[in-house]
């Protein structure tokens, strides 16, 4: 096995293991370049937040990590996103997007439970892998629902349709769905933008718990949220990565003028 890649943060005197990193990463929607030469390290079992004004490319970058762009024609990746410890370039055409998505899960902006029962929703990722043993499914579903702090609320109605849950519960269900298949990274695309403050708080708490086990990459337009939950923050603007650093550093002592303008609310 390769030597683990590391991210050395001299200022904070810590060494993190790298889970993934983008290298000179470009992305195109047709002729439209949405990401320009992005170099972003993602530390293992840490929360990395992507912030920036809308249209800056943060969601585009996030969706590149599990190849969601492959679903639509005319999209093109350039450069690399390396996943460790395998050290593969996950946007390379030779790499199977299906495998990548099994290993890197995603939670979307609006809760999108399938029109199925709560149980089937959570078990979906395992069913996709051909897991049919009821006992395994039950065990994993319970574990994932506990992990998403939803078990107590739904354990008596696992066969109810997921649509009947409240918005916050639906989003936690989607998190359980992502957790159930033991992903290495979970991508969160503004997971609380459709939720009320109480539901938002519970999701944020959950993220803090999950990161013990899983690497997290989160897009948020809410700077307080980024400051609250993330270890590292990347500020993006017009498709470029302007600044990356430890969250406490970046919010207190931004090195770039644009970052400062954004976090002090002068634009965006």
């Amino acid at each position: 096995m390769n030597q683990p890649k590391t991210l050395d943060d001299n200022a904070a005197m810590v060494t993190e293991t790298l889970k993934a990193e983008t290298r000179k990463f470009n992305f195109f929607y047709g002729d439209n370049q949405a990401l320009k030469n992005v170099d972003l390290p993602v530390a293992e079992r840490r929360v990395t937040a992507l912030i920036g004004p809308s249209g800056c490319g943060k969601s585009t970058l996030l969706r590149s990590f599990n190849r969601m762009h492959d679903l639509y024609p005319g999209n093109r990746y350039e450069g690399e996103i390396r996943l460790y410890p395998d050290d593969v370039n996950l946007v390379s055409p030779e790499v199977d997007p299906i495998e990548i998505r099994m290993r890197i899960s995603m939670v979307f902006q609006k809760p999108n439970p399938f029109p199925k029962t709560i149980f089937e929703n959570v078990a979906y990722g395992l069913m996709v892998r051909g897991e049919k043993r009821r006992s395994v499914l039950e065990e994993k579903v319970e574990e994932a629902l506990r992990g998403a702090a939803l078990w107590e609320e739904v354990k008596d109605r696992l066969d109810d349709l997921a649509f009947n849950l409240s918005g916050g519960q639906q989003q936690r269900l989607c998190i359980a769905r992502a957790l159930a298949s033991d992903p290495e990274i979970i991508l969160f695309d503004e997971p609380t933008s459709a939720l009320d403050p109480i539901a938002t708080a519970s999701i944020e708490e959950l993220i803090a718990e999950i990161k013990e086990k899983v690497t997290i990459l989160i897009v948020t337009h809410n700077m307080q949220q980024a400051a609250r939950i993330s270890d590292y923050t990347a500020f993006m603007y017009l498709g470029e990565l302007v600044e990356f650093g430890r969250t406490d550093e970046l919010f207190v002592r931004p090195r770039k003028k644009q970052t400062e303008d954004y976090i002090t609310g002068r634009f965006g």
Partner: peptide
Amino acid sequence: PMALREGSYAMGATRFQ
């Protein structure tokens, strides 16, 4: 809605699944 399909694809499901 596309969001449902994306939810499934994001779990590594194929088109048929």
